[in-house]
Design a binder for these strands. Structure first.
Lengths: 203, 203
DNA sequence: TGACAATGTTACCGATCGGTACGTAGCATT
DNA sequence: AATGCTACGTACCGATCGGTAACATTGTCA
């Protein structure tokens, strides 16, 4: 008997040893939910594209809504990785860190087929505050706003809260307008505008 | 014989004399589509809340998609009325006109239950560019951007296109973040941030 | 080898989706 | 009174929605 636990639950390895099907479902759902929207994609299309069947989905995820929430949790993780990527490149330079993300975002948001922020899109798709996916999104945005206040403070803004709000508005505006306008959209002015706003927040 | 036309089409009055059912459907659809989202609302719920039946809907509108497009056309009309309301209050003062809209928007976007811009929401709901509702929304946003360039030019900005883009980003950001954050959201900083950005665009 | 748990599959459920065929009530003109 | 036209309602269509019961297969231990 392995020296783990004497309980009758041998499920401990199942928590980290992910079944192959669940992962395929996860990644397929992520791609389809993001590209087409959550409401637009049925579970049948997810499992068929993932090469599995519906019961496999419902053994790993309680419902489509929960799968959507899980998708957003994955999305959030990936977001923070991209957003904080500048930390290593420019340590001790909050402004450079932020601008690095803004430059990358401006690039992506002016590509054709850009779909904005998956978390923001979920909020638009589910106005009622009872949906699990929306809760994930709202909680993330709250954290994101706090992070922008941190960065604004580190940049030496006179009113960090106001600058953080301004940056958040610009970012959300980029997510949204990036999917309405083509490559020559307003997102192409993001960096210049952000520079102006940050400069104006300094003196 | 009335001195109209000798043709065999007595449908001329039908074009302006709207049937009552179509109007009820229109206003009901507008409210439900905006509050809950287009994909979230079925035609059955529209007609039942309007007190009519489905065939009445499909006699006036070719499809649900077309009804959604019509809803956005109505929405756009109402939008321009609100946006251009400052024209009468502050003629020959582009900045005051714009700020009047921004102040009103900041108020609305910090109310609980705010749902953002119906046109932007439609773009998020329908990523494919073939949906009639999305076409209405995209066309409107293009016109809106041009209008912001006009206003930025009239304000005397050094780079009117850049200021217009910055304002558009702030506005779209307000529409989006207004429905994620509560009353104390980033939209409450819209006016202050916009002032900073406009000032910075002048010298 | 054999027991067991996890993951796989086939086939189906009731509900709801957008959309329509068909009958009828009201009202004008003849 | 009969006709033609418009507007509306009843009842229904096939397709798809999210979700599940029952069974087969596989891998991993003793």
């Amino acid at each position: 008997m392995p020296a783990k636990r004497s309980e009758s639950k041998p499920l401990e390895t199942a928590a980290d040893t992910k079944p192959k099907a669940a992962d395929r479902i996860r990644s397929t759902a992520r791609e389809l939910f993001y590209r087409e929207g959550i409401r637009a994609i049925g579970v049948e299309e997810i499992v068929s594209r993932a090469g599995v069947t519906k019961p496999s989905l419902y053994r790993s995820y309680a419902s489509k809504d929960e799968l959507a929430a899980e998708y957003l949790r994955d999305y959030e993780l990936a977001f923070w990785q991209v957003f904080e990527a500048g930390k290593e490149t420019y340590p001790d330079d909050a402004r450079a860190q932020l601008m690095a993300y803004l430059e990358g975002l401006a690039q992506r948001a002016t590509q054709i087929g850009y779909r904005g922020c998956g978390l923001t899109n979920a909020v638009v798709e589910y106005p009622g505050d009872d949906h699990p996916a929306r809760k994930v999104a709202e909680e993330h945005k709250r954290k994101f706003r706090e992070r922008l206040v941190q960065l604004s403070t580190a940049m030496g803004a006179k009113q960090p809260d106001t600058l953080a709000d301004g940056l958040l508005l610009l970012l959300e505006g980029t997510y949204a307008s990036g999917q309405m306008f083509g490559p020559k959209g307003p997102a192409s002015s993001l960096v210049k505008v952000a520079e102006q706003l940050i400069d104006a927040s300094m003196r």
